[in-house]
């Protein structure tokens, strides 16, 4: 097993286990208990916990500080970092800050446009993009150098991830785009929430054909629907989301008070199917403000207990 970093997630994946990650959104305030409580709910059922970075461009407690809280609890944080808000100085600096707390996983993202959030009039930075952020952190780790060429004393030691959205357009570049991220140095992928399983299967088939699933660990992104209303919202309002009509109908077809349970059932069924799909190396369960349901999903899909590494 050729493990490159101290990341527990990397070890689990390279040992051949199906990995399970989940995520917590930081609070809109400075109370550390908010993030710790969420982590407590899921910590025994996952191998790593993503902390989102001002998701949907709404200002929150920073991802790095939240990751540090998790690290101090002895957990395995996955630092999400978007290129929207920081230039290359700040990105490299935050990577070092994370490394100083032995945060060993990072997810490189561009970030939602600021027009979705609470600072619509703000500038965005986009000094580099997510592809180049992957290259940056790999360069810092593997070469032990800053982008400017100077040596780093105690370089960061991150297992490097990125997102992939098989459902965004144009579809024909979605696999080439994955190939590009792999060429940039990405080691694991967490996908956009999967509802259209057929389309995901097609994307995976094309990825397998190019041998990409041998080069990167793909974690399938899962978000249980809380209601038919949420499904409709995701379908119509969230960019890059593919929610089939049948799924909306199925949720709408049960009484309102049972829709949440139906949403969990749908998620569990999807994971069962995806577990058999060649190339799927784990699951990233994004139960948005519904973290308490993660244990049930993990247990019902036979992914519990988590391996001890």
């Amino acid at each position: 097993m050729n493990v490159k970093t101290p990341s527990k997630l990397e070890k689990i994946l390279k040992a051949g286990h199906l990995a399970v990650t989940s995520e917590c959104g930081p609070p809109r305030g400075s109370d550390p208990e908010a993030i710790k409580k969420k982590a407590e709910l899921i910590k025994d059922h996952v191998d790593g916990i993503n902390i989102t970075d001002n998701q949907t461009s709404v200002t929150r407690m920073c991802s790095l500080a939240s990751c540090i809280h998790l690290r101090l609890m002895g957990l395995e944080p996955i630092l999400q970092m978007v290129t929207r808000d920081r230039n290359r100085i700040a990105l490299q600096s935050d990577i070092l800050g994370a490394a100083s707390f032995d945060i060993h996983n990072m997810l490189c993202l561009s970030g939602d446009h600021q027009s979705f959030g609470d600072c619509k009039q703000g500038q965005n930075v986009h000094d580099i993009d997510s592809m180049q952020l992957i290259q940056t952190v790999r360069y810092m780790r593997d070469e032990g150098k800053f982008l400017g060429g100077d040596d780093i004393k105690r370089p960061p030691n991150m297992f490097v991830g990125a997102a992939a959205n098989p459902f965004a357009d144009p579809f024909e570049i979605r696999v080439p785009r994955l190939a590009k991220k792999i060429a940039a140095g990405v080691e694991f992928i967490q996908t956009q929430c999967i509802y259209n399983l057929d389309k995901f299967e097609e994307w995976m088939r094309l990825a397998r054909e190019r041998g990409l699933t041998e080069k990167v660990f793909i974690l399938a992104g899962m978000t249980p629907m809380k209601s038919a209303g949420m499904a409709k919202y995701m379908k119509n309002r969230v960019p890059g989301m593919d929610v089939p009509d049948e799924l909306v109908k199925r949720l709408a077809g049960v009484p309102k008070e049972k829709q949440a349970q139906e949403g969990i059932d749908i998620c569990v069924e999807a994971i069962q199917r995806l577990k058999e799909m060649e190339g799927v190396k784990g699951f990233h369960i994004m139960a948005i403000e519904w973290e308490e349901k993660v244990p049930e999903i993990v247990e019902r899909t036979g992914l519990y207990p988590r391996p001890k590494i």
Partner: peptide, 15 residues
């Protein structure tokens, strides 16, 4: 909108 040099991002939908 994000001046991505290696785009598109995951938000591209129906062109």
């Amino acid at each position: 909108a994000k001046r991505l040099l290696n785009g598109p991002c995951g938000g591209s939908s129906n062109g």
